[in-house]
């Protein structure tokens, strides 16, 4: 086989078949996929299913702590997991740029396969297109996921059971992914050992569901960060949200770079974090379960739902002062003043 992706790999001919056989079937290997049918034929699960889809265009495709393949699997698994569902199946769509190194593609596909395997999720169908050089940036990946959900978890994604006094929890440090990605854009100016937190959350969340924890809401604070999710929630449900500045888990490396670049960690993306809202009396139980899991070691409560300032997210500063946490307008830009 040649060493780069050619338009022929997307033509539907022999090269397409080779690509599917040598890369996807070989690495994603499972009985459903191996049937090589146009549609994956799946058993009908008991109860309802959750369906979600996401596109992955991350740049650079290889970043500290992960790559686009790992991200494409984690991202969709996490969207299912934070809805209270058990992720089961994924489909994957590739858009490949002519000239992409096949060794790079192999690495991303391996990374997808390993991530899906360790999360207990099967990649059961897919599609590949190749576009001319300069018509995409190396590769784009779409993943669609199907999960099963129990009726007692159905309220989780809407947050309709949230009430005043509820605790807001997070499973660890915020802003790692956003800052790790950003630092790669200025390799000569900024260097850091920070890694993206890119990880599958289904096990961490599954532990809570298995132990019948009462959860009123979950969402993963990816683009737009913690501030983005909380603002969405406060606007949609007209909730007052209080955040405590001194409880926010931020690594010194992230806060140091934030100071110098003019960023706020609340707006930086995360790829292995879940914001969880639960009744106040449930928070200790959840935190104790989380802290036993590697992805929840630094879990803590960062705020609560308030009766006041409905529709707004307000942060109490370390000194007792208050400030409004706005939704983000667009990606943060480094600034001098």
């Amino acid at each position: 086989m040649s060493d780069t992706v050619l338009l022929a790999h997307g033509s539907g001919g022999i090269k397409t078949q080779q690509l599917i056989q040598d890369y996807f079937f070989k690495l994603f290997d499972n009985p459903i996929l191996n049937e090589a049918t146009d549609s994956a034929v799946l058993d009908r699960p008991k109860g309802k299913i959750c369906l979600t889809t996401d596109n992955f265009v991350v740049q650079p495709q290889d970043f500290p702590g992960g790559d686009i393949g790992k991200l494409a699997v984690c991202g969709t698994i996490n969207d299912l997991a934070v809805s209270g569902a058990k992720p089961q199946y994924l489909s994957v769509g590739f858009i490949l740029e002519e000239g992409l190194l096949l060794s790079d593609l192999m690495r991303y596909v391996k990374s997808m396969a390993n991530t899906a395997k360790s999360a207990g999720v099967r990649i059961v169908t897919g599609d590949t297109k190749v576009v001319q050089r300069n018509n995409c940036d190396h590769l784009y990946i779409n993943t669609t996921g199907i999960g099963t959900i129990q009726s007692e978890q159905e309220h989780i994604s809407s947050g309709r059971k949230i009430k005043s006094g509820d605790a807001i929890l997070i499973n660890g440090y915020i802003g790692d992914h956003g800052m790790a990605i950003f630092s790669t854009r200025f390799p000569k100016q900024v260097s850091t050992k920070l890694l993206s937190d890119c990880n599958c959350l289904n096990e961490l969340i599954g532990d809570l569901l298995a132990k019948k924890c009462k959860i009123n809401f979950m969402r993963d604070p990816t683009r737009g960060g913690v501030a983005g999710v909380l603002n969405e929630l406060s606007t949609q449900l007209n909730l007052g949200i209080n955040i405590l500045e001194d409880q926010l888990p931020v690594r010194p490396e992230v806060s140091g770079l934030c100071e110098i670049l003019g960023f706020d960690p609340l707006y930086l993306a995360n790829e292995g974090k879940v914001l969880l809202i639960c009744p106040k009396e449930e928070s200790e139980k959840i935190l104790n379960i989380w802290r036993k899991h590697p992805l929840g070691k630094n879990a803590r409560q960062i705020g609560h739902i308030s009766n006041e300032h409905k529709g707004l997210v307000v942060m109490q500063t370390c000194y007792g002062g208050k400030r409004l946490i706005d939704p983000m307008i667009s990606d943060p830009l480094p600034r001098i003043c």
Binding site: S183, K188, Q189, V190, S191, K193, P252
Partner: peptide, 8 residues
């Protein structure tokens, strides 16, 4: 060094 990250 700024809190563990490096800047030029």
């Amino acid at each position: 060094d700024i809190s563990g990250s490096q800047y030029q």
